[in-house]
């Protein structure tokens, strides 16, 4: 935890993130090159699904990341409420739009994959529906950020909402599963080893790491932007107060 406490100093965080960012982004780019090369030219077309199987290489990492970013937001929410970590709500605010984007990418690529495979862009299947509900929760969180002006208050309010959502997500998942199921069950992480062939599994894993690094880099950039935005806000308020004082002094003299 010592390192997390060190990072509570925004200046130190800015310095460290500036050092880290090019390496993370560079590694992400390298892994994207390798991963997409493998996905396009090395991985075989599926015997049943043909070339459309390649959509999987974007679709599956996007789904993982949509869930990972929400988990990160829930952890940050704990950081805001329990430890009052000063950067936790910055991390949370920065993660929300990225998570929403990955949820949207997951839904869109799923729709393009669904059209040739299932014959329709959208079905009210359990997994699709729970990602859609997750997207709605993301949008609600972003909406709450935008309605509250004071960043400190907004951070705590959003943290509570995020945690309530986090408790709710497994319940939603369970209830939607109960409601309807068509999507294939999980085929990578399961007991008894993956059911997917190594020639497809490797590009998928490499791309998953690449997408994760991309998401983390974007997250760092967004956090840095948010910290600077707050600094500008504070400076503006201070400057306005200074001008106020000057005007008062001028009126008195």
């Amino acid at each position: 935890m010592a390192s997390l406490i060190d990072l509570a100093n925004p200046t130190r965080f800015m310095r460290l993130s500036r050092l880290l960012l090019p390496w993370m982004a560079g590694l992400a780019a390298l892994l994207f090159l390798i991963g997409f090369y493998l996905a396009w030219f090395v991985a075989p077309a599926d015997y049943q699904q043909g070339e459309t199987i390649r959509i999987m290489f974007v679709h599956v990492p996007a789904a993982w990341l949509a869930m990972m970013l929400y988990t990160m937001m829930a952890l940050s929410a704990l950081g805001t409420l329990v430890w009052r970590h000063p950067l936790a709500d910055v991390a949370q605010k920065a993660a929300a739009p990225i998570g929403a984007c990955f949820a949207l990418i997951c839904l869109l690529t799923g729709a393009f994959w669904g059209k040739p495979m299932w014959g329709t862009y959208w079905v009210w299947d359990a997994r699709l529906t729970s990602v859609l509900v997750l997207l709605l929760i993301y949008l609600g969180i972003i909406a709450l950020w935008r309605t509250l002006d004071d960043p400190g208050r907004a951070g705590r309010a959003v943290a509570i909402l995020t945690l309530v959502g986090f408790v709710n997500v497994p319940i939603i998942k369970f209830s939607v599963d109960w409601w309807n199921t068509l999507h294939q069950p999980a085929s990578v992480f399961r007991t008894g080893g993956p059911t997917i062939h190594p020639s497809m599994l490797w590009p998928l894993l490499i791309l998953a790491i690449a997408f994760t690094l991309l998401a983390l880099s974007l997250h760092l950039v967004a956090m840095r932007a948010e910290i600077m935005r707050r600094r500008v806000r504070t400076l503006t308020i201070l400057e306005a107060e200074r001008l106020d004082r000057l005007a008062l002094a001028g009126a008195a003299a």
């Binding site: 509900v133 709605l136 929760i137 949008l139 609600g140 909406a143 709450l144 309605t147 509250l148 208050r153 309010a157 509570i160 909402l161 309530v164 959502g165 709710n168 319940i171 939603i172 369970f174 209830s175 939607v176 109960w178 409601w179």
Partner: peptide, 30 residues
């Protein structure tokens, strides 16, 4: 819970249903 989050808002209005509606999916289903 949603209403408490929006308690201090000048322009609450639609925000509470937007926050709360996705969380009511299980209730509706069952």
């Amino acid at each position: 819970a949603g209403a408490a989050l929006a308690a201090g808002l000048r322009r609450g209005g639609l925000i509470v249903p937007v926050l709360v509606a996705p969380l009511t999916v299980p209730v509706l289903i069952f």
